[in-house]
């Protein structure tokens, strides 16, 4: 993101790069965004009055899309490793792979939403539909933005604007991409697996309460 530069890059007081610090501050802030959405979903868990809820979640299919997103993170670090060694073609290849895997993930999500609508679950159906679809949709929007970002980097690399000396651009995009991945790790674990498990959250809470007392 040399091209995103603010003030010319000189020595900073902390020794930390301005844009990298900005990205980490943003990710800290984004924790609060996703945290609020996931909390809303958990608060309304089991409160839906009508329509399908957790039982509708398709774990096998989502396991595959989760794996796809995990592998996109691998492709992302490989892209960074490539550009840090000055291998622009390698970077381009891995960045494209990351973006394509991200697009496949989005495809899975569209398929999931379509299936849910088919089974009678839309954001308007019940509380589960509202919280689940807005939360995962917000995550999908993050992935989509990331895909745009990655293709922009590929595009700019052809104009010679992504180089070994500007590998920070790729690193920062990578931070964003991995963050989107870890948010999905949490959603897959907490919302899909535990959520659809039939394990009442209360059981877990009793366990915690038992340990504390």
């Amino acid at each position: 993101m040399q091209y995103l530069a603010g003030v010319p890059e000189h020595r900073t007081s902390t020794g930390l790069n301005n844009r990298k610090l900005l990205m980490w501050a943003f990710l800290g802030s984004d924790v609060m965004f996703f945290g609020s959405l996931i909390t809303t979903h958990l608060i309304y868990r089991g409160q839906s009055l009508t329509g399908p809820a957790e039982e509708i979640l398709n774990i096998p299919v989502t396991s595959i899309s989760t794996f796809v997103l995990l592998m996109s993170s691998l492709a992302m670090v490989l892209a960074l490793a490539a550009i840090q060694r000055g291998n622009i073609r390698g970077m381009r290849l891995w960045l494209s792979a990351t973006a394509v895997l991200g697009m496949i993930f989005i495809g899975f999500q569209m398929f999931e939403f379509y299936e849910f609508a088919h089974l009678g679950l839309t954001p308007r159906t019940n509380l589960f539909g509202s919280t689940f679809l807005v939360m995962t949709g917000f995550h999908g929007a993050h992935v989509t933005f990331g895909v745009f970002w990655l293709w922009s980097l590929v595009f700019l690399s052809f104009k010679g604007k992504v180089r070994q000396d500007t590998s920070l651009d790729v690193e920062i995009a990578g931070l964003y991409w991995h963050f989107v991945d870890i948010v999905w790790i949490v959603i897959f674990g907490v919302v899909y697996l535990i959520g659809a498990y039939g394990v009442e959250a209360s059981d877990a809470a009793h366990a915690v309460a038992g340990m504390l007392s």
């Binding site: 670090v77 990578g174 870890i182 790790i185 907490v190 498990y197 394990v199 959250a201 877990a204 366990a207």
Partner: peptide
Amino acid sequence: WLMAMILLTLSLSKFALVVGYF
């Protein structure tokens, strides 16, 4: 609840690996 705890722990370890290494 034990299984829920294990699932939570596994998710957290994935989280930690991605944040720590990637």
